[in-house]
Design a protein around this nucleic acid. Structure first.
Lengths: 329, 329
DNA sequence: CAACATAAAGAAAGCGCTTTACCATTAGGT
DNA sequence: ACCTAATGGTAAAGCGCTTTCTTTATGTTG
């Protein structure tokens, strides 16, 4: 049924060793033989089994991608760009949703190791470090996205979250805001964003508290709506909100609208990620833009180089975010 | 370095055949031996190589998922639900973006066959049938999503697009609309939606033309905005728009807003898919909801049963969409 | 023309696992 | 005491490919 290297060898009147050499362009093969073999391969529409190939120690040309949640547009767009770049280099991507659960992270990593993926791209939160250590110990290529791990010598790609937060603060303060609420869940990247945000406020000598309102555990739109409502109904309500991602910002917009606040007059809102959401909501959302395509391409480039043993200069890439100013501020 | 079945056999003082039987719960093994072997496996943290296992004819527990574009929220949510259901049954999913390109579809299918995935879930447009035929001929399990293929005996899962279109039309007509523009690109599912839409209008003896405005090739938000503008600036402008997906509907909303049309007073809009976009846009979007989690689960259930040789009663599942009425109508 | 490179191709081992015989034991039956 | 039948386990082939080592044929050189 399935055509194997034996079928090719037989039909071409050579040994399987010869066929293998033709496939891999290795060893000495005369031009005639090579062309003959190639012709037979084409005729029988032969494709070497990657499974069998992998068993001999070669690559599977498959990468594992761990992300928290594909339904979140930022990760969907990131996954999309990673998959695109991977395809260009003939790699496939197995995508796994972890929901920020370290149990799932470990399970997936174990499973994908078993499946012999060539490398991992970890865009999951990874507050828990054990799985990553496992990979490093086993010498399996890893690149971490959207998070730095100074404690490990591991490749990483990220936007400069600190700077992104700084930009957001700068913009809001320049618009005259002093009381600013913040929405975001407790993640490394968010902590960085807030740290940057904070730093700018400090530089401007704007008192941090109670202007600074960090709502932990805000992850879904519903929570963002609820928290925004709460913030706005306070006597000393914020005049602006910095949301750690666009989804939360959208929730904030909705909550503000529901309470008849005008945006940006009564409440200014800045999001993060600049996903498609930012231009879909009404008013359009000012958002800190991560260069998603570049980040995806960088991930693939780093990991594929590592896999192929090509030395790479800078193992920790950081892209500068830019502020996309729209109607919400 | 890597621990293999030989290491286990040696340390447990048995043959690899015995170890294999313990792993697979096959053949006769005494309780002591079994437990001893299990203990050794645990001690060495042994995981059988799926690659080697696959080479002996077993499954890879990996599925291929072809979708047009992960960055489209509907497909992202679908992919998410498929991956979730797959994980429950210990399957991994390789996700591939085809951009509706039949070239990419073929390339991916070829490649994934080479990688010996156990089955395919095709949620790509697939106007071109050759790749699908290949799979069927090769007897590789396939389930088609969001499209029926009456000409092939192939499993499929879909929402009832025809009925969804019918629902949309009914709702709009009941709201008093007669001139209705339609946005959507030329795809099988959209054709069905429009057919259903059409049918209702005919039933109500509402003249189809020029009420019926089918804009071909509308795929991205920008195009939707442009086309909506065009529709609205016509002297005989539509009073309602049916967009074949929420993204396009969001574009329509934006265009209407830009031209200072009030929604729903001046223009009513109905979307399709009921993705997260529907509740994010302002006003919230009335949309025909597909039961995405059920569709994802059904795909996995069908294909895994097929892979495992479990006979399945109904190979063509169709879910009824429901209309989520919101502010836009 | 002997002696030796060199070019081209093949034999065979090995990757890690499954599976099909097949071989010892031991237990049971009469 | 002898035959049969389970019981518990093993040896070995095979899955489809890569790779090292040989072998054989063909030139080249002094």
């Amino acid at each position: 049924m399935k055509v194997t290297i034996y079928d090719i060898a037989e039909k071409a009147g050579v040994s399987i060793a010869t066929v293998s050499k033709v496939i891999n362009n290795k060893g000495r093969i005369s031009v005639e033989t090579r062309e003959n073999v190639l012709a037979v391969m084409k005729e029988l529409n032969y494709r070497p089994s990657i499974i069998a190939t992998a068993l001999t120690g070669k690559n599977t040309n498959t990468l594992g991608l761990l992300i928290p949640d594909l339904a979140n547009p930022f990760f969907a767009e990131l996954a999309r760009s990673i998959e695109d770049s991977a395809k260009d280099l003939d790699y496939n991507v197995v995508i796994c949703n972890t929901d920020y659960s370290s149990v799932k992270e470990s399970e997936y990593i174990d499973l994908l190791i078993q499946k012999q993926v060539d490398g991992f791209i970890l865009a999951s939160g990874f507050e828990q470090m054990k799985p990553v250590e496992t990979l490093i110990e086993r010498n399996i290529p890893v690149v971490i996205v959207a998070r730095e791990l100074p404690e490990f010598a591991v490749m990483s790609v990220a936007n400069d979250d600190y700077y992104g937060g700084y930009l957001a603060a700068q913009h809001l303060v320049e618009q005259g805001h002093q009381y600013i609420g913040i929405l975001g869940r407790d993640l490394w990247s968010n902590r960085e964003r807030i740290r940057g945000f904070n730093t700018y406020l400090e530089e401007q000598e704007i008192p941090l508290w109670p202007n600074f309102k960090y709502i932990e555990g805000v992850e879904h739109v519903e929570e963002a709506i609820k928290e925004t409502r709460r913030l706005l109904s306070d006597a000393k309500r914020p005049t602006a909100i910095f949301a750690c991602n666009d989804l939360l910002a959208a929730g904030a917009i909705r909550a503000a609208r529901d309470l008849d606040f005008e945006i940006p007059e009564d409440l200014a809102i800045v999001g993060y990620d600049d996903t498609s959401i930012a231009t879909i909501v009404q008013p359009t959302l000012t958002s800190v833009a991560q260069p998603i395509p570049e980040i995806g391409a960088a991930c693939i480039s780093l990991i594929v180089n590592k896999i192929q043993g090509i030395p790479v200069q800078n193992k920790n890439l950081k892209f500068n975010p830019t502020l996309m100013i729209r109607q919400s501020t």
